[in-house]
Design a protein around this nucleic acid. Sequence first.
DNA 1: ACCTATTTGTGCGTATGTATT
DNA 2: CAATACATACGCACAAATAGG
Lengths: 242, 242
Amino acid sequence: MHALDDGISRWRRVADAIRADIASGVIAKQLPPEVELAERHGVNRHTVRRAIAALSTEGLLRAERGRGTFVNAQPPRVIYPIGERVRFRENMMKQSIEPSGRLIGAERVAADARQAALLDVAVGAPLHRLERLAVVDGMPMSRSTSLFSVQRFPDIISAYAETGSITQALQKSGVSDYRRRETRITAERVSPNDVELLQCASDAIVLISNAVDIDMEGNPVQSVRTRFLADRFELSFKPDAD
Amino acid sequence: MHALDDGISRWRRVADAIRADIASGVIAKQLPPEVELAERHGVNRHTVRRAIAALSTEGLLRAERGRGTFVNAQPPRVIYPIGERVRFRENMMKQSIEPSGRLIGAERVAADARQAALLDVAVGAPLHRLERLAVVDGMPMSRSTSLFSVQRFPDIISAYAETGSITQALQKSGVSDYRRRETRITAERVSPNDVELLQCASDAIVLISNAVDIDMEGNPVQSVRTRFLADRFELSFKPDAD
DNA sequence: ACCTATTTGTGCGTATGTATT
DNA sequence: CAATACATACGCACAAATAGG
């Protein structure tokens, strides 16, 4: 019978009670241990764990093995401008943030239909795939996967490895300047592959930006898919430019 | 000892196995029952449930009590342009989609510091808050909250209620045209308040667009915060315009 | 209309593993 | 090393929704 006062399950009511305690300030930083919460609410420890799991999924709590369960403080999001001119380094330095890119890996792949259309190459044409991790103050901020035509940019990978900058690597390859043609944005849960690199929870949310850069003649230069941690970033679009 | 082959927990390996089966097409639409999966993988039913819960959080699966657990079909996302000229109705009709807005509620509120700065009014100044739900083919697509200065637009609420269009309501209020000054985008889990209106899972992800519209003289007209379901939308930004 | 089998959801008890203090 | 606290895993029981006879 389990003595349900209404149609709400016990773990939901425990979760609601904890959420209320946090909102009212009764619980400020750290939760009582699971066994104590179980006693206090008159439920099994598993039921408390179920409630904590739900609140963790909401992003409200964070459990650390051996230490305890803590209320998540949400720092203000970094503002990331998107527009015609997109330069990671410049954007960050405007906000007094020292950025750095890290090369994760590079590979040659064959263009599928979608990629071929974006980069204006034949289906099956060889592409360089460049995997990068953007780091700010030692904190991973975004993961990006860039695609370049091998035919047009045969040495782009080594150029990036040397300079650590897409802009400079493209200059070495004869592209003096480039601009963004289109940026498409959506959001998903982080892929398991990126969890370790981004040092985030396995159910974190990432903003996904799919973009195509073009040179001054309008020819596609790179197609890039960037994953930003949504709780650390806000993408800003200003028509006027700045 | 539980016979862990490596450092990965059993539920994770079951989850990985299920994910692989889906990717390879071995499982197409519906999963075998939990008890059968438990037998097949040599684990307890709870362990299978843990794996299914993780994959559900990823959006890959959907469990229905009494029926079974199903693979989520992901329909292609609707592309939503963001740029200087933002007109919900026009945007949707370009993709042969018939939109409609629904008035959820309206309220008078006092401007806090942030809102006051955005709308260029005094802190504490009265604002109209307009709550809307955008619906496409009977399917809820986005929830938005608009703020207008009461002083400048005393009758905006009734004008919207009559016309069902922000653009037309503003025209009635003497704003012949307007454009977007800035759009900021991030993502969060859906707020419990919006779950019912958006008819989504309680842990769904929403893209959040915070934007300010200005009239042709550059004066702020409205501040609007829109929540799009991330699995139904892709926001597109093209510098050139279209 | 009813009953039954199937399937997911909830809850408790117990034991053990692992990281932190 | 010991105590504490979260993580994983198994087993059992019953509730609730669904589907079919």
